[in-house]
Design a protein around this nucleic acid. Structure first.
Length: 577
RNA sequence: CGGGGUGUAGCGCAGCCUGGCUUAGCGCGUCUGCUUUGGGAGCAGAAGGCCCCGGGUUCGAAUCCCGGCACCCCGACCA
């Protein structure tokens, strides 16, 4: 490809309204352009990279024995009503009414459709196990799209679905995907971490997320410094405190705290540390109020709370509900005398003589104690982990970092097969729901993640298997016939060797060529200029190195694989750092 | 959905508060010509604007007011 005729519109200046390095680089390097909030055009080089990721995904899925299919984006809403996810997805799902008045949805995912295929086409254990996958566009009407292609309203997902006759079979299918995912992200040259996750709306029990460590990630990861324990914040367990505070119980008192409705205000006013306060949060779960107690310096983990309460339908109570159910205003709730189910986080168990709200305006209670003043219905793990918490699995300490969710694998079980009636007959002719797994990869996120991980001041540094080109030939002053001829000769040689090479034949100054090559992240740059041409040589430079190699023009072809291998080796080193 | 912000040339922005000194500017990019060509070249010239849309106030609106739309940020929410 000749640059003079290739659409790769680089930007000298930073675009406005970008919130991550990857988004900025993708736009500046001419890979993508924004069409609207959360929707992007992929320009030639961007699409080329996307296809490289797609091909890696496809090859590894095929290698793992999955079969590629293509399911429609457009789906009848009936299937979603059948699976009872029509309302669960709610406004996140793009819907419209067709000309006959039928409600259609643009698939945010494809469990329903794939289960429909299987219920129609599979009826015997002899046809199982099977794994069907596709690489297809998904639509999700995101509340707030952001971070470029990392959270967009339309995105490309590889979604696979396994169908088994036994738990053991599901374990095998799951394991095969675990391995395939590892191969995919290895080949993409990404750093990643595999963490325990919550399965959310998808259902099922076991789920693991593949996470790219990145500051711009939306997910919080909890990792043990000592063992391999690593989990999404939503899922991360907190170890109950080992020892209780040793303090004699003091008499509880009611104190006036006018206007002090927040933890900060109360700690300052009463001069007690936040960890000697107990926050009483009123939730409404399936229409019923529940009080949840956590230490003042802790927060409720709503995902874990939802599991404890066994419903997805929880929300913090509004002001009116709090007043009606506790008898006091928002900000002054407390467990003493409260007429509703009270559950407390384990950390509360260790406290003595703590402060709570009094369910009365501008009033708190001091020196409140468990059992003497109130007794929670149960102690649970309902809080958000914090740095310094002890690992639930060993005696290590937990730390918190950020990550981009790039893949998620679930053991679904029979949630969908039961609801949609995907059954098989076993050897004895008995009917059972098929046991399912589902496995997603955010294909666009592969690219964005690579850029979050590997970049410098000058631009992108591509993992070798994702780079839009392997090499660029920068012809300095292509109007000089000798230079043009030499550059062209090398170009033809490399093309003949199946090297993916771009010839920068633009009549622009050397600086522009170098800046563009760096910005786009050309792994190998071959500079053809009058300076070295006299000695019949060219300069070869790898993107991440400062120094250049002097190579005889006739030897570029012979040496190019060596340079490529060197680039690959250096990137692998960066990846493993 | 709540709070805040922005909308002016392909991109990045100034002008708006205090209406007329603007024929609406600047930088980048684009086009033409000449000179250049090893880290975003120089000179000369040029093209390119429903100043987001609609309504209003005014002798006069990019500027003030009302309504709408789009985009962004924070929050809530989230596979």
């Amino acid at each position: 490809m000749r640059w003079s005729n290739y659409l790769i519109p680089t930007l000298k200046e930073d675009p406005s309204e970008t919130d991550t390095i990857s988004q900025k680089l993708m736009i500046r390097a001419g890979l993508i352009r924004k069409l609207g909030s959360g929707i992007y055009n992929y320009l030639p080089a961007g699409f080329k990279v996307l296809n490289k990721a797609i091909n890696i995904v496809r090859e590894e899925m095929n290698r793992a024995g999955a079969q590629e299919i293509l399911m429609p984006v457009l789906q009848p809403s009936e299937l979603w009503i059948e699976s009872e996810r029509f309302n669960a997805f709610g406004p996140l799902m793009c819907k419209f009414t067709d000309r006959t008045g039928k409600i259609m949805v643009l698939g945010p995912t494809h469990e329903e459709v794939v289960t429909h295929i299987v219920r129609n086409e599979i009826s015997s254990y002899k046809q199982l196990p099977i794994n069907l996958y596709q690489i297809q566009t998904k639509f999700r009407d995101e509340i707030r799209p952001r971070f470029g292609v990392i959270r967009s309203k339309e995105f490309l997902m590889k979604d696979a679905y396994s169908f088994d006759t036994s738990k053991g079979g599901l374990d095998k299918s799951f394991d095969a995907m675990y391995k395939a995912y590892s191969s995919i992200f290895d080949r993409c040259g990404l750093k990643y971490k595999i963490v325990l996750a919550d399965s959310g709306l998808m259902g099922g029990d076991t789920s693991l997320e593949f996470m790219i460590p990145a500051e711009s990630g939306e997910d919080l990861l909890v990792s043990c410094g000592k063992c391999r324990y690593s989990a999404n914040m939503e899922k991360a367990e907190c170890r109950p405190p080992q020892s209780l505070e040793q303090e004699p119980l003091k008499a509880s008192e009611s104190v006036l705290t006018p206007g002090k409705s927040t933890i900060d205000a109360v700690t300052e006013f009463l001069k007690v540390p936040a960890m000697k306060l107990v926050k009483t949060l009123i939730y409404v779960a399936d229409g019923k109020p529940v009080a949840v107690l956590v230490r003042g310096d802790h927060d409720v983990n709503e995902t874990k709370l939802a599991h404890i309460l066994n419903t997805a339908n929880i929300a913090m109570a509004d002001k009116e509900t709090i007043e009606k159910t506790t008898g006091g205003p928002l900000g002054f709730s407390g467990p003493v005398g409260l007429k509703m189910t009270v559950i407390a986080d384990h950390s509360v168990k260790a406290l003595k003589n703590f402060v709570t709200g009094a369910n009365k305006a501008d009033t708190h209670l001091t020196n409140v104690n468990l059992d003497r003043d109130f007794t929670p219905a149960q102690f649970v793990d309902a809080r958000v982990c914090v740095t310094g918490d002890k690992c639930p699995k060993c005696d290590g300490t937990l730390s918190i970092s950020r990550g981009i969710e790039i893949g998620h694998i679930f053991k679904l079980g029979t949630k969908y097969s039961q609801k949609l009636g995907a059954l098989y007959l076993d050897e004895k002719g008995a009917s059972h729901p098929i046991i399912m797994g589902c496995y997603g990869i955010g294909v666009n996120r592969i690219i964005a993640s690579a850029l979050e991980l590997f970049n410098d001041q000058d631009g992108i540094i591509w993992p070798p298997n994702l780079a839009p080109f392997q090499a660029v030939i920068s012809a300095i002053n292509p109007r000089d016939e000798k230079i043009a001829a030499a550059a062209n000769g090398i170009y033809e040689t490399l093309k003949g060797m199946n090297i993916d090479v771009l010839l920068d034949d633009r009549d622009v100054s050397a600086g522009v060529k170098f800046k563009d090559a760096d910005l786009i992240g050309m792994p190998i740059r071959i500079t053809v200029g009058s300076k070295t041409l006299k000695s019949n040589t060219v300069d070869v430079k790898l993107r991440m190195q400062k120094e250049q190699y002097t190579v005889n023009i006739n030897e570029v072809g012979v040496k190019i694989h060596g340079f490529w291998n060197e680039y690959t080796t250096l990137m692998e080193k960066m990846r493993l750092q």
